[in-house]
């Protein structure tokens, strides 16, 4: 894999990024024991640093990242891992059905980091990031709409893409993909 073809090679912070310099020198040094950065386990995915906090330390980790120069949350989405057992998770992080994946960006110097939180199926709840990054409002609503993951402290927990009276969460793996009967209910108002 050559360097110019890929975005993440230029901004991989693992080797000599300021993240490694400032707070988590352990991340740079390869070792047999699980690496950590910002106090949570870390893995490398195609040259991209991925943090794996648990649900309790999730907001703290994001806040620490924000204070470290990660100015924006670029993306927040859910992943449903039903029937998928093997995953690239560090030791000590238990695989759950749902994941919430947050991508952050720092501008000076340009670098990215990703945060993956495991959300259990029986209690799909995680804290909202609204107070850290208000830009996650729509993204969290979408994640709830599509996966049914509830965000505690979200100012407007409602469906965003599906109709308000929709049943189910379409992007879950156990939601049928195929064509569903038209749920057309007629005109709502007089002419």
């Amino acid at each position: 894999m050559s360097e110019e073809s890929d975005t993440a090679v230029a901004d991989t912070p693992v080797a000599d990024g300021p993240v490694a310099d400032s707070e988590a020198p352990a991340a740079a040094e390869a070792g047999s024991q699980p690496e950590t950065a910002y106090g949570v386990a870390v893995t490398d995915s195609r040259g991209q640093m991925v943090l794996h906090p648990d649900r309790e330390t999730y907001v703290e980790t994001i806040t620490a990242l924000r204070d470290d120069g990660f100015v924006s949350v670029m993306d927040l989405c859910g992943v449903d891992n039903l029937n998928r057992v093997t995953r690239d998770l560090p030791v000590g992080v238990g695989a759950e059905r749902f994941e919430v994946v947050v991508s952050l960006i720092a501008h000076e110097p340009p670098r990215r980091i990703r945060v993956r939180v495991q959300i259990p199926e029986n209690d799909p709840t995680v804290a909202s990031l609204f107070d850290v990054f208000p830009g996650t409002e729509n993204l969290e609503r979408e994640t709830w709409d599509m996966f049914g993951v509830t965000f505690d402290g979200h100012p407007d927990p409602s469906r965003i893409l599906m109709p308000p009276d929709w049943q189910g969460h379409p992007l879950r793996k156990d939601f049928a993909v195929g064509s569903v009967p038209v749920q057309f209910k007629g005109a709502a108002a007089p002419r």
């Binding site: 893409l161 599906m162 109709p163 929709w166 038209v182 749920q183 057309f184 209910k185 007629g186 005109a187």
Partner: peptide, 14 residues
């Protein structure tokens, strides 16, 4: 979309 369908019908009725 399913969400748009009632709206579309309403426009048609109007």
């Amino acid at each position: 979309s399913q969400k748009m369908a009632p709206v579309l019908r309403q426009i048609y009725d109007q």
